[in-house]
């Protein structure tokens, strides 16, 4: 996918919707596109990780202890917790289909957040949504 198409895709995601095209272009210079086959473990629970992942195409399952916690699709992100605190991954993320992700390093993401705090707000909104969903699932369970 070329940069113009990626920027177009990023603008449709909640976390980058308000980021300028110029800033996204700068971010893309140090981001990497990664395509993996279905069944591939993209991040592994317990491992240290440097990348923030945004799904450009395809789908992935979030797994822990053999249990599926969530399914992520186009426009979703993962790896954000390690970007924030640098701690090891909290779950496995496994490609459900062939999947293409944009991978942004922890420092590039932090730099972008510093200059574009609205990204942090959007990430927080999504994190809260996930937390509430987990809480609800636990209450029901």
């Amino acid at each position: 996918m070329d940069n113009a198409k990626i920027i177009e895709a990023l603008k449709k995601t909640p976390i980058f919707a308000k980021t300028t095209e110029e800033s996204l272009g700068t971010l893309l210079k140090v981001a990497i596109q990664k395509t993996v086959q279905a069944g591939t473990k993209i991040v592994e629970k317990g491992q240290s990780g440097l990348g923030f992942y945004l799904i450009l195409d395809g789908a992935a399952d979030v797994m822990s202890g053999g249990k599926k916690l969530a399914e992520l699709g186009k426009g979703s992100f993962f790896g954000e917790l390690s970007v924030i605190d640098g701690a090891p991954r909290t779950a496995d993320v496994v490609a459900k289909t062939e999947i293409t992700c944009l991978v942004i390093s922890q420092w590039a993401m932090r730099g972008t957040i510093t200059t574009h705090p609205e990204i942090a707000l959007s990430m927080l909104e999504e994190l809260v949504r996930r937390l509430r969903a987990m809480d609800e699932a636990r209450t029901k369970g």
């Binding site: 210079k29 140090v30 981001a31 990497i32 990664k34 440097l50 990348g51 991978v103 390093s105």
Partner: peptide
């Protein structure tokens, strides 16, 4: 391995 582009 760390998904860092050598072009960076």
């Amino acid at each position: 391995r760390h998904d860092i582009l050598p072009a960076a």
